[in-house]
Nucleic acid binder design. Structure first.
Lengths: 227, 227
DNA sequence: CGCATAACTCAACAACCGTTGACCTCAACA
DNA sequence: TGTTGAGGTCAACGGTTGTTGAGTTATGCG
C-alpha cells in the first residue's frame, strides 16, 4: 500500500478516460437502444467475485488481501476482477458499500417507543453481526477501518453526516450525536470482543443473553440524563 | 502475507540454528565471561527501530507495514531490522508485548472499593489510550488484532488466561470473566470510536466528560445484578 | 596494540504484487 | 446469420516485498 494510490477520490482512471471499462452497473442507467451484444450480469460471476472479496477483506484487511487470492477463491482469472471493478481500491469501496436499509432502520428504531429503544437497537445491531450475509460486510468494514486510514475516513463520514444526521431528524432526543456515538461505541466494542477477539464468555453466550446484558447500557445512553 | 510464514510458533530459524543472530536480550541471560568485544544495546538504535515499528504497525496494521518503511523512519538499513529481531513476525510479536504493569494494575483496581470500581477502571483504561507512550502500543494492538488472525489469537490468549485469571484471584466478584469481558468490550468500543474512527463528539470531548458518561455502564457490568 | 564481538551497510535473491493489453468465446439482437 | 459487446483468459510489465550472506565499521577488553 504505497505504490497503489488509495481510494479513487476522483479517479485518475476516469479523469484521463482511457482506463478499462469497469461497467458502472448503476441499475438506473438510461439503458440506451443497445443494438445487440451479450447482456451484462447474467452469469453470477461478478457476485461470486464480490463475495470472495468481502470474505478476504473481512479476514485479512485491505493490505492483507490480494487480487489474486480473490480471483482464486472465486475461480476466475485475476484480470477479470479488475475487468469488473477497475481497481483494488474500487473493489474495496464496493465491498464497504453499506446496505441502505441499515441507514433506514436506525432512525425508525429511534422513532419508536422510548421505553424499549435500547433493547430494540441492541438486538437489531447484534443480529446484523450474527447473520452471515450482513455480518461479513460488517466484519470487513470493522477490520478495514482499523487498518486503513481511508476506510476510517469513509466510516467517519458515513456515520457522521449520514447515519447520525438522518437519525437526528427522525427522533426528538436532545444531543443525538452524543447519545448515538456513545451507544455505537458500546455496541461495536461488544461485537469486537465477541466476533474478532472471540473472548469467552462473550463469544460463546447466546445472543439473547448478550442483549439482556448490554441493552440497559444502551438504553441509558439514549434516554438517560446526561451529566 | 502468504509467502511469509506468520508467527514463529517454534521458529524454523532457531530449530535449524543457522539463521542470523537476533540477540535474545532477555535481561537475565547468564552473562558469561565475555572476553572482549563490543557491548550490545549501547547505541539507542534498537529502541529507535522498535519505536518506528510500533508506530507503523499502529497506523498501517501488520500487512500494511513494511520492513523498509520501519528502517527508513528509524534511519537505518532494512537488514539491520532483521539483524535485531530476526523476522517481521518476531518484530511484530515484540511490539505487541503488553506492558506488564497493565496486567498488574487491573487486579489492583478490582480489589479496591467496589462503590467506585467502574470509575477507576474506566479512567485508568482511557488514560492509557491518551498518553502517547502507552496509547501507541494499544492502538497498534487494536489494529493488528483486527487485521491479523494470529494477533487476535495472541490477544485472546492474553486476555483469557492472563488478565482475567489474575483478576479473578485478586477479587471476589461472581462470574468475573463475564463481568470483565463485558466491561472490556464497552471500554474498547468507546476508544475505537474516539481514537480510530474519530467520530464526533466522542473524539473531541474531554477525558473527564467521557469518563462521566461511560463509567456508570462499567460500574453496572462489574457490580450490577446479572440477568 | 590486537583480538573479539556487536553494530551496521550493501547488493542481490526469489517470490509476489497490482495492473495492462491483446486475444478469444460466448449470448443476444438486427 | 452476421455483428456487437460482455464475459473471460493469458502472458507479461515494472515494481515492491521479506530475507539473506558477505563484508565493513565501531567499540570494548586483555
Amino acid at each position: 500500500m504505497s505504490y497503489a494510490r488509495v481510494m479513487p477520490r476522483s479517479s485518475t482512471r476516469e479523469a484521463t478516460g482511457r482506463g478499462r471499462s469497469a461497467p458502472e452497473d448503476g441499475g438506473a442507467t438510461a439503458r440506451r437502444t443497445h443494438a445487440g451484444g451479450r447482456r451484462a450480469g447474467q452469469s453470477g460471476t461478478r457476485d461470486a467475485v464480490l463475495i470472495a472479496a468481502r470474505q478476504s477483506f473481512a479476514r485479512q484487511g485491505y493490505a492483507g488481501t490480494t487480487i489474486r487470492a480473490i480471483a482464486s477463491t472465486a475461480g476466475v482469472d485475476p484480470a477479470l476482477v479488475l475487468h469488473f471493478f477497475g481497481s483494488k481500491d474500487a473493489l474495496f469501496a464496493t465491498c464497504l458499500a453499506f446496505p441502505q436499509d441499515v441507514a433506514d432502520t436506525v432512525p425508525r428504531i429511534l422513532a419508536g417507543p422510548a421505553r424499549t429503544v435500547g433493547e430494540r437497537l441492541t438486538r437489531f445491531y447484534f443480529e446484523l453481526w450474527e447473520r452471515p450475509e450482513t455480518g461479513q460486510p460488517l466484519r470487513a468494514m470493522f477490520r478495514s477501518v482499523a487498518s486503513n486510514e481511508d476506510a476510517a475516513r469513509m466510516a467517519h463520514e458515513f456515520i457522521g453526516s449520514h447515519l447520525v444526521a438522518r437519525a437526528a431528524e427522525a427522533s426528538n432526543y436532545d444531543r443525538v450525536d452524543l447519545r448515538l456515538t456513545l451507544a455505537g461505541g458500546q455496541l461495536a466494542g461488544v461485537m469486537y470482543a465477541r466476533h474478532i477477539v472471540a473472548v469467552a464468555p462473550l463469544a460463546t453466550m447466546s445472543l439473547d443473553d448478550l442483549v439482556r446484558h448490554v441493552a440497559p447500557s444502551v438504553q441509558r445512553y439514549l434516554t438517560g440524563t446526561l451529566p
